[in-house]
């Protein structure tokens, strides 16, 4: 991938967790997309958790990419969980009426 860094990704008990860093935008999405769509094809993965707390920008291309990941997981009744979203990112997701589609939590532990 180019600008945005992928850090701290792990796979444990059927959960693929990943922390994104930097901009998730039209420049970086082509690279990030490949990394995120890969796990959706693995049947042993039941959930994907993405932590956005270190993401500086999330634009429409990033949200469209999340829809693709969600569609990949939804086929098997699996879960996409987003945490650490900024207020602006949440608003964009809400404007796209996707706030009821994605599972959105406040903190990376997924407790809130």
């Amino acid at each position: 991938m180019t600008q945005s860094l992928l850090e701290n990704h792990s796979f444990r008990e059927g959960i693929f967790s990943i922390q994104l860093e930097g901009p998730v935008d039209m420049e970086t999405v082509p690279g990030i997309r490949k990394t995120l769509l890969g796990p959706t094809r693995k049947t042993e993965i039941r959930e994907i958790h993405i932590d956005f707390s270190r993401v500086t920008v999330l634009d429409t291309s990033g949200i469209a990419m999340l829809v693709e990941v969600w569609k990949g997981l939804a086929r098997g009744g699996r879960v996409l969980r987003l945490t650490g979203l900024s207020e602006k990112a949440r608003m964009l997701i809400q404007l796209a009426r996707l706030d009821r589609v994605f599972e959105i939590r406040n903190d990376p532990t997924g407790m809130t």
């Binding site: 039209m26 999405v29 082509p30 997309r33 429409t60 291309s61 949200i63 469209a64 990419m65 829809v67 693709e68 404007l95 796209a96 009426r97």
Partner: peptide, 23 residues
């Protein structure tokens, strides 16, 4: 404009167009 100015794949672009239309 998305096809002209970005390297985004068609699948992503189609979803983006739908998001904009919905807004």
């Amino acid at each position: 404009p998305l096809k002209v100015h970005t390297r985004l794949p068609d699948e992503t672009i189609q979803i983006m167009a739908l998001i904009k239309l919905n807004c």
